[in-house]
């Protein structure tokens, strides 16, 4: 069964690159480019295996989305990876997420990292 990755990223090009990198290593990819749409998506039934969350988003910030995901148990088995260009912001959230990635994020880097991820409940 292929793993679902949810990419929450408002920059179309970056979203494309991230999606391509993840597809390369067998992920199914869903893409949302807006905070509001992202909120609706994370409230929907299917819980992704991996979430790539940009911290700068229109309408609803990445921080608020992160708080919502961390609230219940639904996302406890999901790998959460935040992406930001702000090194300080990454530092601030490092303890709350699985990966805090500072842009630029390389194609190969994301691909290799995503390839190594195993289901959380099997670790």
């Amino acid at each position: 069964m292929s793993k679902l990755a949810l990419i929450i990223e408002d920059d179309e090009d970056l979203a494309n690159i991230f999606a391509e990198a993840l597809r390369r290593v067998g992920y199914d990819v869903e893409n949302v480019t807006d905070g509001k749409a992202a909120q609706e998506r994370i409230r929907a039934d299917s819980v992704p295996f991996l979430v790539l969350l940009d911290m700068h988003l229109p309408h609803i910030s990445g921080k608020d989305l992160l708080i919502e995901m961390k609230k219940g148990e639904r996302f406890s088995n999901t790998w959460i990876m935040i992406t930001t260009a702000d090194a300080r912001l990454a530092e601030d959230f490092r303890d709350q997420v699985d990966f805090a990635m500072i842009k630029p994020i390389l194609f190969g880097q994301l691909r290799d990292l995503a390839a190594r991820l195993k289901p959380k409940d099997q670790i």
Partner: peptide, 26 residues
């Protein structure tokens, strides 16, 4: 500075990503 850092890094990240994808024969 915060805005510039974000606005400059994002397109550069895209250039870098596409170039890598070419190189990786995606």
């Amino acid at each position: 500075v915060g805005i510039v850092s974000h606005e400059l890094r994002t397109p550069l990240n895209a250039i870098l990503g596409y170039a890598e994808m070419f190189k990786e024969t995606v």
